[in-house]
Amino acid sequence: MIWFKSKEHIAAIVTVGIALLALVTSFYKTDAEVYLFPRIAAIIITILATVLIVKVIKNTTNIGSNFPKLIKWKTLLPGLAVGAVYLFLLEIVGFYVTSFFAYFSICVIYGRCDMTNRKRGIFKLVVSTIFMIVLFLLFWNLLHVRTPTGWLI
């Protein structure tokens, strides 16, 4: 993996990917008049990606073994999973109920103390409830935003 010496390298690779995506989606089977601006944007992205690659190659300096770990997947994944489930159920179950559970889950998973600590758990539950009540009063009663109710609310 000679390429991944620094985050600049990864950035360059990602950019090339974006450029390819932009080129394919805006040129393949599309109408020139409708896609005029997307095409211009795609070409500029490609040019910039090339410049970036050239710069990265020119400036290759060996940072070597102490390449920093960019993303802590282990910490992040539970949160992303909660977010995904939350967004999926949002419209089906109802905004306020799902939001309550999402809020509570994030607080429990990422709280600094042990997850089984009952006292803190109750505190988090209370905070989540109060937050949801305030949110309901603000959006539903005060601002008259009607969120989809789904099964519950």
């Binding site: 306020y96 109920v97 539950l125």
Partner: peptide, 19 residues
Amino acid sequence: LSKLSLMLGTSLLTLAAVT
């Protein structure tokens, strides 16, 4: 905790029932 979640559940359900 259990008592609380029960209470919460019922209150949310009544809220949902109203709307």
